[in-house]
């Protein structure tokens, strides 16, 4: 157990020594909590409170609810599951109530994830570059950070990198993941689940008119109205991710969210043999599956049937053949009956 000294305590002491009322100064308490030996113990210690669903307060400025709940299940399932709380939240959180200064911490994903040999090598610099080009950051830089969309407490990467040079070393992966996570070559997640997870990130704000209006201090756009050019809106939202249309096709790191008028708006961009979806959502699934099963893979054929995208020419030809045969059969049968009828009448 390390002796922890909180600079805030010093501040309090200075106040007392400078003759202020002791009680006043101690309004901001500084108790040192037992320090946990392991990350798990540390999590357990913090989750005593932070696993409470309703842990939170109402922000005196906005009146809005600030929820400090960390769903235990989600956290234990996240990519950050093995971290101790203090690995990220460094200063002052051992004290109860946490001193205001501790709460002013500024955390930034790239700080840990870039140039850190202990971290899974990733492409956070590129992500950062893209993010800064995104419509969110360009319009309202003061309102957007990684945490606006991603909750580090239950962040879960959707898939592995496609670039073999960027593949992390296996040993390191297994520090956090089970062997089975990597069956068939990537983090296995159901496409529907991935769509729901990713869309939730967008809809958490965009489906909540209140939150959008707060930011833009104006009318919130009506999602249904702005998408009404698209048939079967709900079905699309269930099966395709927002970012599949709202990102440029050349966007490798999926963070340069486009302005609405630059988004994909042509049906045939997806509903064609050369569907852009194959560069995005289905890219990896397809790749893996095709390697394993060849052209008759389950992803494009069964799991998510998309009109025009089937891409199995043999099947197309086969269906034309069957249809032709059927027309021929009916014609032949009709003709035969007509001929036989005429004969009988005579």
């Amino acid at each position: 157990m390390s002796i922890y000294f909180n600079p805030f305590a010093l501040a309090s002491l200075v106040l007392i020594l400078s003759g202020m009322s002791g009680i006043q100064a101690f309004e901001l308490p500084t108790i040192e909590m037992p320090t946990a030996e392991t990350a798990t113990d540390e999590q357990k210690h913090c989750l005593r409170c932070h696993s409470m669903q309703t842990l939170g307060y109402r922000d005196p400025v906005t009146g809005g609810l600030v929820n400090l709940h960390i769903p235990e299940e989600g956290f234990k399932d996240s990519n950050h599951q093995a971290l101790g709380c203090k690995d990220c939240h460094k200063a002052g959180f051992q004290d109860y109530p946490h001193p205001p200064k501790a709460k002013q911490e500024s955390l930034y994903c790239v700080d840990c994830h870039e140039d850190n040999p202990n971290m899974i090598p990733s492409y956070f610099a590129e992500i950062e570059r893209e993010f800064k080009e995104s419509v969110h950051f360009k319009r309202m830089p003061e309102h957007f950070s990684c945490f606006s969309c991603h909750n580090a407490h239950f962040f879960k990467a959707s898939r592995k990198s496609s670039d073999p040079n960027r593949m992390p070393n296996r040993e390191m992966c297994l520090n956090c993941h089970a062997e089975t996570d990597f069956e068939a070559g990537g983090l296995q997640r159901d496409i529907n689940e991935m769509v729901a997870y990713d869309n939730h990130i967008c809809l958490d704000c965009h489906a909540e008119p209140g939150r959008i209006a707060d930011l833009k201090s104006g009318e919130a756009p009506d999602l249904l109205a702005s998408h009404d050019w698209m048939p079967n809106i709900q079905m699309h939202w269930k099966k395709v991710r927002c970012i599949d249309c709202h990102l440029s096709t050349s966007d490798t790191y999926m963070h340069q969210i486009l302005d609405a008028d630059q988004a994909v708006k042509h049906c045939e961009d997806c509903h064609s043999a050369n569907s852009i979806l194959l560069t995005k959502l289905y890219k990896y699934k397809m790749h893996e599956s095709r390697q394993k099963y060849g052209f008759l893979n389950s992803v494009t054929l069964n799991e998510a049937y998309i009109i025009g995208m089937t891409r199995n020419v043999i099947l197309d030809q086969l269906s034309f053949l069957i249809m032709g045969a059927m027309v021929l059969g009916i014609t032949a049968h009709g003709t035969a009956r007509w001929v036989s009828n005429r004969r009988r009448k005579r």
Partner: peptide, 21 residues
């Protein structure tokens, strides 16, 4: 009262935490 009814106490956050149980 909302689900965060404690607004003044220095323990308001943890008090609100109790509401779930």
């Amino acid at each position: 009262h909302t689900e965060a009814p404690h607004t003044k106490s220095k323990d308001r956050v943890i008090l609100n935490g109790h509401i779930a149980r």
